Computed example of a mutant assay.
Amino acid sequence: MLSYQHAYHAGNLADLQKHALLAWMLDYLTAKPKPLTYLETHAGRGLYDLAGPESEKTGEARAGITRALSEDWLPEDHPLCQALDQIRAMHGPNAYPGSPLIARYFLRPEDNAHLAELHPTEHEALSQVGGFAHLHKQDGFAMAQAICPPTPRRGLLLIDPSYEVKDEYDAIPRQIAKLARKWNVGVIALWYPILTDLRHVPMLMALQQNHPEALLSEVRFPPARPGHGMVGSGMFVINPPYGLADEARRIKALYSGL
C-alpha cells in the first residue's frame, strides 16, 4: 500500500492538468484579502528532480511539462508558470514542484496549511521543504476529517491518492460526502486517473449523484508506454471558484491534438 513513488511520474500529462488547475484556483483564492486554509490528503515529497533516474526511466515528464514549456502550451503569466519559475530559480532548472510547493508559492503569512503524507520516505523528503505547513504523518483522510471544518473556514482541500488499493475508489465518495457536510464552504478538489479498465466510473457516478453542482473536467492522452493503463485524468471540484470552468476548458483544449 505504500509502494507508490511519484518521482517516476512527476511532471507528466496528468500532473500538468492537475497542477494547472490547482495553481489557477490558488491564484484566484489568494487574490482576495481574506485568509484561507489549504489541505492535502496525499502530499508526496513536494519537490522532484526531472533529471533524476526515476524521471529519466519513464520519460513521462518529457511528454508532459517539458514539452508543454517548449511548445508554449501555457502563457508566461499562467499561475503554474509563475510558480514553476520561482521554484526553478530556487532549486535549479530541472526542479518540478509537487502540489505542496505550488501551494507554498501562493499562500500568504496569514494562511494556514496542513499536509498529510503517510509514506515514510516521502514524508521525510516533504519535511525538508514543507516548513510552511503543519505536516501530518498519518492517513490523509483521517487528517482531513479531524481538521474540517478548518480555521480559517475559507479554503481548498486537494485529494490526490495513489489509487494503489482498489477499495479507494469505493471509499472516496463516502469520505468526500462527509467532508462536504462538515465543510460546506470549502473547495474540495479530487484528482483521479482515467484507466483503460474504467475502474473510476462507479466512483465518478457516485460523486456526481452526491454533488450534482460540482465541476468535472477530464483530459485524454496517449499511454506513457505500450500497455500502460492510464489514458487520461480528471478533476472533480466541489464549490469550484468562479471562472474555473473556463480555465478547465482552456486546459482541456491543450490535449486535443495529442
Rank of each mutant, 00 (worst) to 15 (best):
139 D>W: 00
164 E>M: 07
249 R>V: 12
231 V>H: 09
114 H>R: 13
207 L>S: 06
167 D>Y: 01
102 I>E: 08
92 G>R: 03
173 P>C: 10
235 M>G: 04
42 H>I: 04
138 Q>H: 11
95 A>M: 01
199 R>D: 09
84 L>H: 06
151 T>H: 14
20 A>I: 05
102 I>W: 01
77 D>I: 00
86 Q>Y: 12
74 L>C: 08
38 Y>Q: 06
89 A>G: 15
137 K>M: 07
98 G>Q: 02
152 P>M: 05
208 Q>T: 10
201 V>G: 09
184 N>D: 15
196 T>H: 11
127 S>C: 12
214 A>Q: 08
223 P>T: 00
187 V>F: 01
210 N>A: 15
112 N>M: 13
24 W>D: 12
86 Q>R: 14
38 Y>E: 03
6 H>E: 03
54 E>F: 12
239 N>M: 11
41 T>L: 05
115 L>W: 00
67 R>W: 11
147 I>F: 09
239 N>G: 11
197 D>I: 06
205 M>I: 13
50 L>T: 02
19 H>C: 00
237 V>Q: 08
231 V>Y: 04
54 E>S: 05
168 E>V: 05
64 G>K: 07
34 K>R: 15
37 T>M: 08
160 D>V: 03
198 L>H: 15
190 L>T: 09
37 T>L: 10
202 P>Q: 03
20 A>R: 00
145 Q>T: 13
155 G>A: 04
204 L>G: 09
162 S>K: 10
89 A>D: 12
234 G>H: 07
91 H>V: 00
72 D>Q: 15
52 G>K: 02
119 H>K: 00
39 L>W: 02
241 P>N: 01
86 Q>E: 14
86 Q>W: 11
177 A>Q: 14
158 L>G: 02
125 A>W: 12
257 G>N: 15
109 P>S: 05
204 L>M: 14
227 G>E: 02
103 A>S: 04
60 E>Y: 09
69 L>I: 11
75 P>N: 07
46 G>K: 07
132 F>I: 06
252 K>V: 06
71 E>C: 07
43 A>K: 04
168 E>S: 05
14 A>S: 13
204 L>W: 06
188 I>L: 06
192 Y>S: 02
209 Q>A: 15
232 G>L: 05
206 A>I: 04
154 R>Q: 01
174 R>L: 14
248 A>L: 03
199 R>K: 08
6 H>A: 04
93 P>Q: 07
81 C>M: 14
41 T>Q: 05
202 P>Y: 04
80 L>F: 12
81 C>S: 15
175 Q>D: 14
252 K>N: 13
